[in-house]
Simulated scan of single mutants.
Amino acid sequence: MTGEAAVRQLPAMLLLFSLPSIVTAQTPTELPTIVVEAFAKTSNGWSSDEVLLDDIRRERFLAAVRARSPDADEADCNLMLLKLRKAGKLTVKATRRGKPADDRVLPIAEIAARTIMEKFDVATDTMIADPTLRKAFDAAALIVDPDVSLYDIRKAAFQLRKSRRLKPELVLRVADWDKQVVVKPLPEVRSNLKLVPTLPGVYLFRDQTGYIYIGEAVNLRVRLTQHLNDSDRRSLAAYIEQTSGEGLSIEWHAFPKDSPARQVAVRRAYESELIRSRNPRLNVRP
């Protein structure tokens, strides 16, 4: 069974929100040499990025590494490959790179990548290199579009990284405050509004095309109830009515009641940074 098939058989929400802590293994001193030789032996002209993005090519590369170092950690091997490529130390020139990611996949990749990067505070390279984080990223993408190709979505994430569209928002790195990030399909929220906490926070409506609308609230349950019953944001109300909520999901960032997010000015600063970086279609840019 391929890695993609295995991920598709697992409940996406379980993968995404029930992950163990990420532990970094020790890197053996001989690993750079082993990785260079394994890549030269197995890459078949593909670039280092293409080797990591494709399940079959990556497994072939890892098998070659483990033939020399049986206990080598997958994340260490993959990150070392990227590090050596950036340092210009790979001895084989890439002659095959594949096609660029389809523009239609880029919004899905951005949503999935930001979900994982915020939850685990990791960079894009680590998210793809670490097998546990990669499965979480794949699962996050499948929540947005169950039919998306996992290879395409990973490639899109790397493409976004290179264009610096996944640069972390400064306010999100500073404003931790024990926030809880939750994603639910809109129909599920509508049928059980008690899923939404009565806490201050920021909420994001999104679908396969990207982010739709971002807002803030002193009480997330009250505000989302208003939006789902008869939103005072007419463009959002029309969009929800037009789609009947199908394909839409709601992501909320909930903060403790005694956190700085209880102040409207703080929530609006957080909201404005999200609007600036994620460019939701129905918001007026702050």
Rank of each mutant, 00 (worst) to 15 (best):
E50I: 04
S48E: 05
D54Q: 12
V35W: 11
L82E: 03
G98N: 01
T91V: 14
A75N: 08
R58H: 03
D54M: 02
A67T: 06
G88P: 10
G45F: 10
A75K: 14
A75R: 15
K41T: 09
A40M: 10
E50G: 12
D73M: 00
V36D: 03
W46Y: 15
E30L: 05
L90M: 11
P70S: 10
V51F: 12
D71W: 05
K83E: 14
N44D: 13
G98V: 00
K89S: 13
S47M: 05
A72D: 07
V65I: 04
S69L: 12
P28V: 01
T27R: 14
G45Y: 06
A94F: 08
A67R: 08
C77G: 03
A63G: 12
A64E: 14
K83W: 03
T91S: 14
M80F: 07
A72R: 09
S47V: 02
L81N: 01
P70F: 13
V35S: 04
D71L: 15
P28R: 06
L84S: 11
L53R: 04
K83H: 09
K83R: 14
N44T: 07
D71A: 15
A67P: 00
I56L: 10
L31V: 03
D76F: 00
D55Y: 15
S69F: 04
A64P: 10
T95H: 06
V35Y: 15
A38D: 09
A72S: 11
A38R: 02
D49G: 07
D76E: 14
G88Y: 04
A38C: 12
R57P: 00
E30Q: 12
T95M: 07
R57I: 09
D73Q: 11
I34Y: 03
V36A: 15
L52Y: 08
D55I: 13
R96F: 01
L53A: 10
E37H: 13
A67M: 10
L53M: 06
R68D: 11
R96L: 08
L90K: 11
F61N: 12
W46V: 00
G98R: 03
G45T: 02
D54L: 04
E74Q: 13
S43H: 10
R58G: 01
P70W: 11
E74Y: 06
L52F: 03
K83A: 15
K86P: 01
G45V: 05
R60L: 06
T42H: 08
K86E: 15
E59S: 15
D73W: 05
D73A: 06
L31S: 12
W46S: 01
D76C: 14
I34S: 12
K86N: 11
I34C: 11
P28H: 05
D76S: 15
A64I: 02
R60G: 01
W46T: 00
P70L: 10
E30D: 14
V65M: 08
R85F: 02
R66A: 02
P70K: 08
T27W: 00
L84F: 04
T29P: 00
V65K: 04
R68A: 13
L84A: 09
A38W: 07
D76R: 15
L81M: 07
K86Y: 07
S47L: 09
S43R: 10
D73P: 00
K93I: 09
S47I: 01
L62S: 13
T27E: 13
G88I: 06
R97T: 13
A63M: 11
D54R: 04
A64Q: 14
E59P: 01
S48C: 08
L62N: 10
E59H: 11
